[in-house]
C-alpha cells in the first residue's frame, strides 16, 4: 500500500547557507498519526513546510505516491492541510465563516458550496454559532479549532499540525486531542508536548540537527532523549 507521505533524502539549506535538513527519510502510512519531536531549531517546521511545497529542497517528497513538484504543488496543497503554529497567521479574514470558506473558494468551489463546506467544518470542530465573530475576539483554543476547520473545509487527505498546543490551556489541549483522535485522516504533528503526543500519536520520530535521529513510541523516545520531566528531581 502506498504511504500517504513519503520523504526520501531531503536536504534543505537556508539562504544564509545554514543547513536545515540534511537527509530526511520519513514515511507516514494510511490511518497513522506520527508525532515529530525535537529541539527548537532542529528543522521541524522546515520539514513540515516541505510537505506542501511551500519550501523546496533537494530530494523527493511523494504525497499519496505523487511526486511534489512546482507544477503539482497547487493541486497537492488541497490534499495536505497545514495548521500553523500561530493561529493569527492563519486566520486573516475579518469573520470566522469567511476565513474557513477561504480554502474551498481557492479550490474553485462556488461561494454557496464554499460556505456550506465551511459551516460543516465548523460544526465538525464543535464551533457552531460563531460564524460572524471576528477571529480577534476568540480564545486561543477557539482560534486553533477555527484554523483546523479552515483546513478541514478543504477536505484534505492528510493533516499537518505545527505545535498545535501552543498557547492552549490544559482543557483546551484535551479538547484538541479529542478532536484529533476523532478525525480519520493520517496526521503528522510537530510538538514539544510529550503527553499530548502520547495521547494522539501511534509513533514518533525524533529530529536532531536536520536528521531523523530515532523512531519509536513516544514513551521510548522521551526516555531516550530525556524529553519529559521523568528525570527531574522534585523540590526537596
Amino acid at each position: 500500500m502506498t504511504p500517504v507521505i513519503e520523504v526520501r533524502d531531503l536536504y534543505y539549506s537556508y539562504e544564509d547557507g545554514a543547513q536545515a535538513l540534511s537527509g530526511i527519510n520519513l514515511t507516514v502510512g494510511t490511518g497513522e498519526t506520527v508525532a515529530l519531536l525535537g529541539a527548537n531549531g532542529s528543522g521541524k517546521t522546515t520539514l513540515l513546510l516541505h510537505l506542501n511545497g511551500l519550501l523546496t529542497g533537494r530530494g523527493t517528497v511523494l504525497i499519496g505516491g505523487v511526486p511534489l513538484t512546482p507544477s503539482s504543488a497547487q493541486r497537492l496543497r488541497a490534499k495536505v492541510g497545514v495548521v500553523f503554529q500561530d493561529s493569527d497567521d492563519q486566520l486573516f479574514l475579518p469573520t470566522v465563516l469567511e476565513d474557513v470558506a477561504f480554502g474551498p473558494l481557492n479550490q474553485g468551489h462556488p461561494p454557496a458550496e464554499a460556505l456550506r463546506r465551511a459551516r460543516a467544518a465548523l460544526l465538525s470542530t464543535g464551533l457552531a454559532g460563531i460564524d460572524d465573530r471576528a477571529p480577534y475576539h476568540l480564545s486561543a483554543g477557539e482560534k486553533r479549532r477555527v484554523a483546523l476547520a479552515g483546513v478541514l473545509a478543504m477536505e484534505p487527505d492528510i493533516l499537518i499540525l505545527d505545535e498545535p498546543t501552543t498557547y492552549l490551556d490544559p482543557p483546551a489541549q484535551r479538547n484538541l486531542a479529542r478532536l484529533l483522535l476523532a478525525l480519520p485522516q493520517p496526521k503528522l504533528i510537530a510538538t514539544h508536548d510529550v503527553r499530548f503526543a502520547a495521547a494522539v500519536a501511534h509513533r514518533a520520530v525524533f529530529l536532531a540537527a536536520g536528521k531523523i535521529a530515532a523512531q519509536g513510541t513516544v514513551e521510548d523516545l522521551a526516555k531516550q532523549y530525556d524529553w519529559d520531566w521523568a528525570s527531574f528531581s522534585p523540590r526537596p
Partner: peptide, 16 residues
C-alpha cells in the same frame, strides 16, 4: 505562507 498553504493563488473571492 498560511494563505499559500490553503491554495491561495492571487485572487480573494468574496464569499458573502
Amino acid at each position: 505562507m498560511a494563505m499559500l498553504s490553503r491554495g491561495f493563488h492571487g485572487s480573494l473571492p468574496l464569499a458573502v
